[in-house]
Amino acid sequence: MTALLQVEGLCVSVAHPGNSDPVSLLRDVRFALSPGETVGVLGASGSGKTTLALALMGLLPRDFTATGAVHFDGHELLSLSEGARRSLRARRISIVFQEPLTALNPRQRIGAQVAEVARAHGERNATRAHRLAVEMLSRTGLDDADERAHRFPHEVSGGERQRALLAMALLLDPALLIADEPTSALDVTVQAQVLQLLRAQQRERGMALLLVSHDLGVIATTCARTIVLHEGHVIEDTPTRQLLAAPEQPQSRALVDAVRPPEPAP
């Protein structure tokens, strides 16, 4: 089976103006992702999981250095020009972030922001772009999408904002969706709905999903395989069921124990 995404020896470091030595955030990260596969990236805060998501999207801040290779869909992402990368984003590879409020432009209506994605990738007709946006918003489960599309981000709930972000990410039917802590800022009930939506969309489209989270509960209900990151290293890459049953590393075990119910289920 050919991999959709293949990460080889990925290292990311950042140079702080004060320190002489650059700080390593990711060290020799390697894994592969097949088309349609769901993989979780599990790690405590500071393990490098968000850096990984940003590196795959080519969105690392300028003072970060990435080495190694990231093969995606016939391209080597690290050596790709910014323009070529931009044309891949949203079309082939998409991301949703944790905080739906800051990821949206506060001064632009939601529908317009979703339509913007279509227009940035060649849709010239404004009406058609808007219609596409509303359709996508309703497919991501936004009630009364026609009306919601005319609202500003602060006029809808956190769950609705996350649905709007998902609509933007899925509009052009990408082959890979990266979700970076997509539900950490949400209430548990809303989290459950968003995760359900994520699973349904993944199945329906047959796209690959890379779900980044510190919470194994979120990953275990969504991803067949889990990669555990610890201090920038991949310490485990295993089917999720196996991780739940028998984590190999002590750091993985801690993450598993953290979500285990207090006593054996009655």
């Binding site: 989290q191 509960g217 979120v218 275990a220 209900t221 069921r241 739940l244 049953a245 979500v259 285990r260």
Partner: peptide, 21 residues
């Protein structure tokens, strides 16, 4: 019940308990 349903159902022992937590 809605709050309980929102707790992620982690498939701990799949063979033994199936869907239940």
């Amino acid at each position: 019940r809605a709050l309980l349903a929102a707790i992620p159902r982690i498939p701990w022992e799949t063979r033994a308990s199936g869907e239940g937590r």
